[in-house]
Structure formats: C-alpha cells, structure tokens
Write a protein that binds this DNA or RNA. Sequence first.
DNA 1: CTGCAACTGAGACTGAGTCGCAATCGCATG
DNA 2: CATGCGATTGCGACTCAGTCTCAGTTGCAG
Lengths: 167, 167
Amino acid sequence: MRTRERDIFRKYLERRGLKLTTERQAVFDELFARHEHVEADEILVRLRGKGKKISRATIYRTLELLVDSGIVGRVRIGEIGYRYERLRAGEHHDHLICNECGRVIEFFEPRIESLQDDVCERYGFLPLSHSHQMRGICRQCRPRTSVVEAVASAERAKAGRRPHLVH
Amino acid sequence: MRTRERDIFRKYLERRGLKLTTERQAVFDELFARHEHVEADEILVRLRGKGKKISRATIYRTLELLVDSGIVGRVRIGEIGYRYERLRAGEHHDHLICNECGRVIEFFEPRIESLQDDVCERYGFLPLSHSHQMRGICRQCRPRTSVVEAVASAERAKAGRRPHLVH
DNA sequence: CTGCAACTGAGACTGAGTCGCAATCGCATG
DNA sequence: CATGCGATTGCGACTCAGTCTCAGTTGCAG
C-alpha cells in the first residue's frame, strides 16, 4: 500500500544520498495511514503512543523532506501552526474549514483556478503557489446553528483562542 | 483625516464602556498612517522610534479591538505571524505576494467571489470568511528572475527560513 | 474626594518550530 | 574486522510571535 508515494520518497532520498531510516518510515506511515490533515505534534504523540521512540526534531525534519519531495503539502489550516496532507500528483484542491467542528472539506473548482491565472496575468505576476480557504459552518453543523448564531460562534471560538476569521 | 474610521472606532469603544486612550489613538494613527499591511512589532518599533512609550501587550490588545470593531483586518500574509490592514467597508480583496521582494498586491475578482459562493452552496457550507492568496514573482522582480530561477528562488527563501510555498 | 472599573507596562509564560551538538548509525573500503 | 565518514538522531536550549498576570495608574461617575 502507498507504494507509489513510498517509491517517490525513496527515490527522492536516494537521489540526494539520504537514507530511508526507520524513523522516516514511521513518519511516512503515520502520515499516510489515515488522517488527511495532520499536525506535526499529532504524529509525535501517535508514534510515541505506539512505543516508538522519536524526537520532535526528527518529525519536523522528516516532514520537511516529505514536503520537498512533493508528495506532502504543508498548509495553514488552523490559526496556529501548519498541517500536513498527502498530495496527489496533478490534483490540486482548496479547503472549507468548519468553525464549529473543525472539519476540513476539500474542494476543487477549475473555474476559480483559471480566473486566478487571469488575475496573475493582469498584474504581470508569475504564480508559484496559492492557498485558498473559506471558513464557516459545515452542513452537519448548520442545522443547530442559525445564521445569527454563526457570528456568535465565531466570537466564541475567538474567546477560547480558537480559530479566528482570517478575513 | 480618517475621521470615518476613527468615529467607528470611538463608537465601538463607547458602546462597550471602553476608553479612547492616547495609546489606542497612537496605534490607530500608526496603522492608518501609510502602510497597508503592518505587523504588530512594526507598530511597536515605529511608535517607540517616535519617542512614544508603549508596550507590546498594549499594541496587541489595541489591534484586537480594531479588528473586532471591523475597521481592520488580520491576515496571514507572511509565513509567520499576522499582518493588519485597514478594511474599507463592503470592499473585499485578496493578495498576491511576491516571494522575491515581499511586495503585496491587492486584487479583487468578483467572478472568483461568486464561484466561491457556488462551491459553498454545493457543499451546504455557510461561509463566514475566506482567505485567498497567491505567491510568486511580481512584475518588477520578473525581469531579473527566469522561470527556472523562480523555483530556485523559492528554495533559497526556504533555506533562509523565509517564506515557504503554502501549497 | 472616593471608588471602581478600565488601562497600562513589565516581564513571565506558552507553544510551534528550529538549531547546535555530541553520540550513533550504516555502509564502503582497506 | 577495523577505520573512516557523512548521514542521522535525540536532547535540550533557543527563538519568536503572541498571550497572560499582576501590580500600579488613570480617569470618570457619583
């Protein structure tokens, strides 16, 4: 399983004389196991829970390698820190993030992508990457959250030092 | 000058029994003076440079009030921390950020906005806010940066712990 | 003037992420 | 097997933005 990505990673390491150590394997496996959007510390905790002895620094170092190899993406989803997600070649997606339950929905809208290109062209801007996310209330959470409350929910989240509106 | 925003801010404070102190005025003035996208510490340094005695905590506290009052937006533009920008009522814009010189270009594309609504509807998602930014090379920096180099530039930026691609 | 809530600065604290370093590993070579 | 050497690791110290605490100050209502 996950052999395709694993191969890419292995080759990436090989090409620069790096080694596929057990620690790197462990991080890879954890990241590709189940969760779509993981924080570095989540991986640390999970691996430690499994009895694996690994340091925070190694996790970060490995995540950097995974990002550089192109199979993992680094996104700012919460308000603090980064999250990592596996990337499928060629596919690009953006995120809807629920302020209520934290759920992250991925979406892809080619027409937005192409309008982005228009904008770049208009400004003579050469795009290298982009990030696009909307925060709000997801379908599951909506029934129990009126529109008026939604704003209050944002407030509450804020009060608890939780996700802010990005703007 | 800036009386409209100043009034909004004053009323906002009044309504909740807060005071328009000289420190709050100073932060307000500094933010609305000239710069579009400012970091909290920039304000601190600038005010201190003017001989004003003010603490970091007060800056942050005041910025929070300004954001809550709705006249200032808090955006993640760099890779770390936030930046603050004045918000013009009703207007919404997004950002192009140059990896080379750090310049921030604001853009507005109503067709993207409306496609965003489509996406939200498709997922039954109630949008409250969004953030959308593209990183790349701006018109001014392009002439001296070939496309191939652009990637290298991203690498360099990274090496120096500078802006990363968000994805 | 008094009282009280709002405000402030200083500095301690937090939490994500990074770095430096000495110890260790893995492997090729003699 | 011994040696060497770069890659790797864990540890703990460090950084940096941002937050919190607290004691002292301010400013206004009564």
